[in-house]
Design a protein around this nucleic acid. Structure first.
Lengths: 167, 167
DNA sequence: TTCCCTGCAAAAGTTTTGCACTACT
DNA sequence: AGTAGTGCAAAACTTTTGCAGGGAA
């Protein structure tokens, strides 16, 4: 019933080495969408986008900046923010505000999912549950409202943290 | 099945006139909890807390500051934030981050509820649905996780806005 | 050649903090 | 009297913007 999709620590770093095929494909999509809008592809944008998609999910601008600087120390903070906004406008990323003050960005995937956030280790688990979606639609119907999107976050202790005694 | 609780515009202002009994009762509770912690009651805190509970829900620090200044122009921004934090620590308010960057605070109520936010007029509707709660517990169980809290926000067009053609 | 893009630094917006003074208890 | 609270201003932090120079198309 509930489909588990990923299980990734928020600070996970895996950008060393080659960029995967999936990343190059998404980069191509990004180039296409830029061209559609009469915008340009640049080295900085490519670097940022590659790192963003390679790194995994739920990254903050600060983390992305630090990672991008490792491979291109010339890139400025403003370009990080501008590129993240561009990715969001191209529907290739989405901005999330979890509990903290700063925003996190996540690569836009195929299908919708929600998040479980472990309050102990910070791990973020994505899941999908049809029953939840159905009931939300029912709630909207009862309110006479039209639903365009939603946000659901579950907080608690993940199975790993429940097993280990401390931290 | 779904219980509707309130329907309040986010910028609603109803602080003129007397403070209600419910407010005075909550103020008393606040005093008690302060005393428990060895903290003091002050005129500024009382003013802020009264306005907060009278005003209704989902207020930002900025709005609260403006409202409090109307009845006590001496109060500073810092005291607003410090008192909101105090209310939160006393479990009498909770901090929410909706779509925007700034936080909104809401009076802590008896029972749990979630929010529908109209993207057209900004209205916030609170609702409660048992089925949703049940499925969330089921999801957590499947993950082997322990659920401590959750956040669910539905976004869309409310019934009023669907009826009226523009805005 | 034309604009878009970039980096830097400064600005903007929200929230926190240091400090001298005030006022609860 | 003693200690926590307050206002102010400055700091901290995240995100945005202005501008002069650089680069993609």
């Amino acid at each position: 019933m509930t489909r588990l999709e990923h299980s990734v620590g928020p600070g996970r770093t895996s950008a060393e080495g080659r960029t995967g095929n999936a990343t190059e494909q998404r980069l191509q999509t990004f180039h296409d969408r830029l061209k559609q809008r009469g915008l340009k592809s640049t080295g900085q944008r490519d670097d940022i986008v590659r790192v963003f998609f390679e790194l995994g999910r739920h990254i903050s601008a600060e983390e992305l900046y630090a990672e991008v600087r490792k491979i291109n120390p010339h890139v400025g903070y403003a370009t990080i923010y501008r590129t993240l906004r561009l990715l969001t406008e191209c529907d290739m990323a989405s901005e999330r505000h979890f509990a903290e003050d700063q925003a996190r960005y996540e690569a836009a995937g195929k299908h919708h999912h929600d998040h479980f956030i472990c309050e102990s280790c910070g791990k973020i688990i994505e899941f999908e549950n049809e029953g939840l979606e159905r009931i939300q639609q029912a709630v909207a119907r009862e309110l006479g409202a039209e639903l365009t999107r939603h946000r659901l976050e579950l907080y608690g202790r993940c199975s790993d943290c429940r097993r280990s005694p401390r931290q």
